[in-house]
Amino acid sequence: MKGTLKLGIALALFAVGACAGLAVVYSITKPQIEAQDQLALEASLRDLFPQGEDFEDISATISSANAGVNISSAFLAKRGGAPLGLAVKAAGPSYGGQAVLLVGVELNRSIAGVRILELNDTAGLGANAKNPGYYVDKANKVTFPGQFAGKFVTDPFVVKSDVVAITASTITSNSLTTIVKAAADAGVLWLENSALAPSADQGSAASYGGSAASESAPETTGGK
């Protein structure tokens, strides 16, 4: 009994020492890690909405309808107080683990652009999604995330039909498309709830079928 206690104390002492060391390193690196994340996010936001002057954090009021896709944050891009569009940061499973995308949604329910923030898929295959020199449409130099720009959320978003897949990377192509679609849906729903997007039966009604839009919640402001 006494021996066991001694062993336990030895183990505990080493654990305490290790924790102390970790605490020091953690407190030094934490602000740096947050700054890096913030920097990367801001660069992507400006990249999606070059005219955007300030970005309002609306993360608390947006949620994903797709259980597999998690929306970690969202920002409303504004210029001189007028909203330009929404940037939704969404994470979902892909071939090599979690993939994090930033999806820009315009007020007219089209996608402003897609940026890949994090993707750990196979180099040379799935990782081509974030390779700026890999084109799914060689003639027009369109990259895999680039092809989403200008698509409307009511488009089918089906790989190999309206979305061009990455060669030999069906899983990556499918997962990323699912994340883009879920993020865009959530973004449009938020815009509709905040009455920022024109409702389904006016404005650019001709450009989309209106199936997704017509099921949307009543046009109330989503408590900001």
């Binding site: 060391g21 970790l22 390193v25 690196t29 740096q32 890690i33 890096q36």
Partner: peptide
């Protein structure tokens, strides 16, 4: 964990 944190930072 220290290496991981330093690399992330």
């Amino acid at each position: 964990t220290m290496v991981d944190l330093v690399m992330k930072a």
